Amino acid sequence: MPLALFALTLSAFAIGTTEFVIVGLVPTIANDLQVSLPSAGLLVSLYAFGVAIGAPVLTALTGRWNRKYLLLSLMALFVLGNLLAWQAPSYESLIIARVLTGLAHGVFFSIGSTIATSLVSKEKEASAIAIMFTGLTVALVTGVPLGTWIGQHFGWRATFLVVSSLGLIALIGSALLVPKNLKQSRPARLKEQAQVVVQPRLLLVYLMTILGYGGTFTAFTYLAPILQSESGFSANAIGLIMLVYGVSVAVGNIYGGKLADKKGPINALTIIFSALTLILLALTFTMTSKIGAVFTVLVWGAFAFGNVPGLQVYVVKLAEKFTPNAVDVASGLNIAAFNIGIALGSILGGVIVEQLTLQDTAWIGALISASALLVTRYSGRLDQRSNINTNLRT
Rank of each mutant, 00 (worst) to 15 (best):
P27M: 05
L83P: 12
W65E: 03
A12S: 15
L80S: 13
T17C: 06
Y47W: 11
G63I: 09
F49Y: 15
V21A: 01
K68T: 09
Y47N: 14
G24S: 04
A30Q: 02
T62C: 11
S36E: 05
V51T: 14
E19Y: 07
V57M: 13
P27A: 06
A30K: 01
S45D: 00
G41E: 01
V21W: 04
T18M: 11
G16W: 00
L77P: 04
A52D: 09
L58C: 10
W65G: 02
L77C: 07
L83D: 11
V26F: 08
A48C: 13
S90P: 07
P38L: 06
L25P: 03
L61V: 10
V44K: 01
I15V: 14
T17A: 04
V26Y: 04
L42G: 05
A52N: 12
G50A: 15
T28I: 12
A30G: 02
G54D: 08
G16L: 04
A55G: 06
G24L: 00
W65Q: 04
T18W: 00
I15N: 09
L84S: 13
Q87Y: 07
I22P: 00
V51D: 12
V23C: 01
R64F: 10
L74H: 01
A30H: 01
V79H: 06
S45M: 01
A76E: 08
I29D: 00
Q87H: 13
L80R: 09
K68H: 09
Y47E: 10
P89Y: 06
N66V: 04
L72W: 07
F49C: 13
S73M: 11
S39P: 00
A52E: 09
M75Q: 11
R64Y: 10
R67Q: 08
S90G: 07
A52G: 14
I22N: 03
L42W: 11
G24T: 01
Y69L: 14
G24H: 00
G63S: 14
N82G: 10
T18L: 10
V26G: 02
G16R: 03
L33D: 02
T18D: 09
R67F: 01
S73V: 06
A14C: 12
P56H: 08
P27N: 05
K68L: 05
Q87C: 02
L74P: 00
P56Q: 10
L70H: 11
V57K: 05
A48N: 14
V51F: 14
L72A: 09
G24E: 00
N82K: 06
P27C: 03
V57R: 06
G41Y: 05
W65D: 04
N82T: 02
A52S: 15
T17R: 03
L25Q: 03
F13Y: 13
A40E: 03
F78N: 10
T28D: 14
L43N: 04
R64K: 15
A76S: 15
S90V: 05
E19F: 04
L33P: 03
Y47F: 15
A14Q: 06
V44Q: 02
Y69R: 14
V44W: 05
A14G: 13
L70M: 14
D32W: 01
L77F: 08
L74S: 05
Y47M: 11
L77R: 02
A60F: 14
W86Y: 15
W65I: 07
W65K: 02
I22G: 00
T18N: 13
T62E: 06
Y69W: 14
G41I: 04
Q87N: 12
V79D: 12
